[in-house]
Design a protein around this nucleic acid. Structure first.
Lengths: 227, 227
DNA sequence: AGGAGTTTGTGAACGAGAGAACAAACTGAG
DNA sequence: CTCAGTTTGTTCTCTCGTTCACAAACTCCT
């Protein structure tokens, strides 16, 4: 997925593990809210919806933060994972495209609570400028470079229609944004070293539909055979 | 991911391949719109953002729909993939939770164009009932079973806050909905045979943040070494 | 102190997915 | 008809990820 460019000095953590760390983090936060101070790999795995062996192996890539015979200290492990992911620091983010989805993203509380701060909402449509969404000004798309430089933005979110997405991505790359979260239903082409993650709502539904169809086809066949 | 319950009579397609079929489908639709009648695996692979060998292997699970020395007929392959996924038929869908995200989902045109028809928007808040969003009535959550039965709903979308999500999922399962797309930041526990896919906005950002951090840490280190 | 009972961290087996490479099958020119 | 050129479908290998199983390390009770 992500291009490994430079020579990895840090021990590298498998991509599959990285994708699960935020899940563990959320589970730990929930446990902490319930005033639970210690948990076993089994308990944490259940809370995160994974196998306990997998959880232990994942955590072992970060270091040895548990105590045998006891388990993990919730607060301590929570901090270690947060530090590893990088959510102990503040991440300025720009969102481009203030349609329905852009609105939803701007209002999503899960961003702010994880250290992601929306510093600007950008839209090409002049009618939307000077609007205020979720306490943030909507600015002209042309100001992207300026805003990115000013706030040190490293992460950009694309919530435009498919047609505009590639242009937006190009401009983001020019502006020095090397990590992009793309909600537009398009394959983006970007230079090496730029990290793109894609979220596609209709693809998720299609995958579900495939499984539904397979299930119903299988049961119809079973019924036929038993007749 | 998905629990394989029944004895698979159909040749089974690897999960990784299933996840890519909708991408191929979209690429084919784009090609068709550009009046391209034939394409090679290389061209289609580029349009879909994958390796051509992987594409050919994926397609080979569906059957042998290409012609050696020629390539694939765009329209024919498009139909075959659509049929395999199941998007040639109509899929009634309910969305629960009409916040910002629910609104965005209800308005998302990519659903309707792929055969997903939103038959109802449900919300527990009585103030929202009889509102109309994207041409669809907002109904009380209590009517879930009734509506699901009436329209033969097989797929449910959860766009509620985290706290409500498990209850909603339980009710969906009771109502016979065995495929759930969950946008709430929670791990759902469901009986075997129920298929849950999760989309988590803040997790995607956290994964990006991890890579940014690693990149900047690596370059800082490189700079240090060269000094 | 010692032993029974837990629970972590990890080595090793296993399975799934990615990519290279090539034979099979087609087209079109001569 | 034959041969060169093209492109698919598939086999093989390698890498990555998952799971099992167990030694190491800790607690607590006697």
């Amino acid at each position: 997925m992500t291009a490994r460019t430079s020579n990895d000095t840090a021990r590298d953590i498998p991509e599959a593990t990285v994708a699960r760390l935020p899940i563990y983090l959320r589970a730990l936060i929930t446990l902490a809210e319930d005033s639970i101070e210690t948990c076993s790999s089994e308990e944490l795995a259940t809370a995160a919806g994974v196998n306990s062996a997998k959880l232990r192996k994942d955590l072992s890539y970060l270091g040895s933060y548990g105590t045998r015979g006891v388990g993990y200290d919730v607060e301590y492990l929570r901090y270690q994972i947060a530090r590893e992911i990088g959510v102990t620091q503040d991440w300025p983010v720009v969102i481009v495209g203030i349609g329905n989805l852009g609105h939803a993203l701007a209002n999503y509380s899960g961003f702010r609570s994880r250290g992601f701060r929306v510093v600007a909402l950008l839209d090409a449509d002049p009618d939307r400028h000077d609007e205020v969404v979720a306490g943030v000004d909507v600015r002209p798309f042309d100001e992207l470079e300026e805003i990115a430089a000013e706030h040190g933005v490293a992460i950009g979110v694309i919530a435009t229609p498919a047609l505009a997405a590639q242009d937006v991505a190009d401009r983001m790359v020019t502006a020095g944004i090397a990590s992009i979260l793309n909600f537009a239903p398009t394959v983006l082409s970007v230079p090496d070293g730029v990290d793109v993650r894609k979220v596609d709502l209709s693809i998720e539904l299609q995958i579900l539909a495939f499984h539904v169809q397979r299930k119903t086809a299988a049961s119809a066949l079973a019924q036929e055979n038993s007749a």
